[in-house]
């Protein structure tokens, strides 16, 4: 997913709504979307903690205990409170990682100095306090644990990215899709399988619910 987002256009654009009902044991087939990143609309200029807890709805306890590694535009974050979400930025979240390097990337960790050249340095907030979008990526255990939260309320993504994801799926993926609705109307899997994003709006709100 591209990180350059014309927020004004996105805010104003139509969104197609796709709802898919899948077998529970096939829910994880959709997790790659969470790892590759999806769009989140937010109030710009707020810090990461505020956005994750107050807007997205993660509990502070979960954030503290499970979200051990955070990147903003590829740079490791130590202080969630002093790191501001800006228009078009990319935020990636991960659980604690193994190895020395995993420990080095952990936020606020003892070994953070080992990646000093790639640490995000908080600047003045000064961002515009308006609505905008950022890209959120969820890796490893966090994708597993938060998939229900995000897919139930729906995630925003470009229809082109969704089509690319769907095009590379195999037969067993489609067998596990029990029902598909586009803008509330049932559709046959083939209509999405062909990856014909032209019939969709530029943006898609994707909901995936276990059957």
């Amino acid at each position: 997913m591209k990180s350059s987002i014309p927020s004004n256009e996105l805010l104003a654009s139509q969104k197609s709504e796709i709802e898919v009902r899948v077998d529970p044991d096939a829910f994880s087939n959709w997790f790659p979307i969470l790892r590759e990143g999806f769009l989140v609309e937010t109030q710009l200029g707020r810090n990461i903690r505020e956005v994750l807890c107050q807007e997205i709805g993660l509990s502070p306890q979960y954030l503290e205990a499970r979200v051990q590694t955070v990147f903003l535009d590829g740079k490791a974050i130590d202080q969630l409170e002093s790191t501001i979400i800006t228009d078009g930025c990319t935020v990636a979240l991960s659980a604690a990682m193994p190895g020395f390097v995993g420990a080095a990337f952990r936020r606020g960790g003892y070994y953070g100095v080992m990646r000093s050249g790639t640490t995000h340095r908080p600047g003045a907030s000064g961002g515009k306090e308006e609505r905008g979008f950022f890209i959120l990526k969820l890796f490893n255990l966090l994708a597993d644990e938060l998939a229900g939260h995000f897919f139930e309320r729906g995630i925003l993504m470009y229809s082109q990215a969704l089509s690319a994801f769907l095009r590379r799926q195999q037969e067993n993926f489609w067998k596990a899709c029990r029902e598909m609705l586009v803008n509330g109307q049932p559709v046959h899997a083939n209509s999405l399988r062909s990856g014909n994003e032209n019939k969709l709006s530029h943006l898609v709100l994707l909901k995936v619910i276990t059957w």
Partner: peptide
């Protein structure tokens, strides 16, 4: 421990790929 009790059993050491890639390392 979340790494030795969950992360490593679930994904193995290759769980690091996405992290190192995101970090540009």
């Amino acid at each position: 421990h979340p790494v030795t009790g969950q992360g490593l059993p679930a994904y193995g050491t290759n769980v690091l790929t996405n992290i190192l890639n995101e970090a540009g390392g």
